[in-house]
Simulated scan of single mutants.
Amino acid sequence: MMDTLPLFPLASVLLPGGHLPLHVFEARYRKLVQALLNEELPDRRFGVVTIRQGWEVGEDNVDSMYDVGCTAIMDNVRQLAGDRYDVSATGERRFRLLQIDTESAPYLLAHVQWLPDATPEPDNPARRERLTAAAREAHERYHSSGLRNEPHETPGADADPADLSYLLAEDCVLSVEDRQALLAETDPMVRLRDLRRLLLREAQFLRELRAVPAPLAEFAQEASPN
């Protein structure tokens, strides 16, 4: 099923359930915020896609962006001088980017296809519990490295395994590429397995380097149009 969303390209990856703070100052995205506030766009919903490192946003194609993004629901808005805005939003639902429309609105629109998780294989509670426990253990090992002393929250035992990988990833520093791979993976059990691998790798880096690695995107030239 295809749908249309206003689009906000960023140099970072928004995950379902994740928190997104934005400082909006570029003209077309100020107009997007105004349209959301005036309820010209339903449910205060817009799409977020990640710009590929070192690329500018394409005007008529999707080549400058990753093809899987996440919708965001605008939670709070604070208007600043010069019609700028501080915005906070929450990640909601994944989509696949099909085509960009630069003509129909003063901001980018995207034709998208929703991307639900794949139909799971016959339920295997033992495998699910094993992967869930392993991912939680890797998350705790990452935060007990001795260098990440800030408070962190561990999702409760009732957290949906399909969402757990996103909840744990949101609480860690991962590269744009790693976060994008988690966003694009449609098998929840594979997502948990991949997250565990990433967290064990990052924990090992922290122990060996005795420093917190920055996401790779921080070393790239800022490509966001906003």
Rank of each mutant, 00 (worst) to 15 (best):
T90F: 00
R78C: 10
D194M: 08
Q99F: 03
A110M: 06
D86P: 00
R84L: 07
D160P: 06
A203R: 02
V87L: 07
H139R: 04
S224N: 08
R136Q: 14
R44V: 02
A203I: 02
A181H: 11
D123A: 15
A110I: 04
D63G: 11
P125K: 10
V190N: 03
E103S: 13
N76Y: 10
A89T: 04
Q34T: 13
R191H: 07
Y29W: 07
D117R: 04
V77N: 08
S175K: 03
L174F: 02
A159K: 00
L109V: 02
L183M: 08
R197S: 07
F8S: 01
E185M: 14
S88A: 12
Q113G: 10
L80F: 07
L37N: 04
M2Q: 15
E202Q: 15
G47Y: 00
L167T: 00
E129M: 13
L5G: 10
N38A: 15
L10E: 03
V87W: 01
S144K: 12
R94I: 05
E121L: 15
V176E: 14
G82K: 09
A27W: 10
F205P: 00
N226H: 13
D75Y: 01
L41V: 13
T50N: 14
H152V: 10
V173Y: 09
G17C: 07
N149H: 12
L108T: 00
A72C: 12
E59G: 14
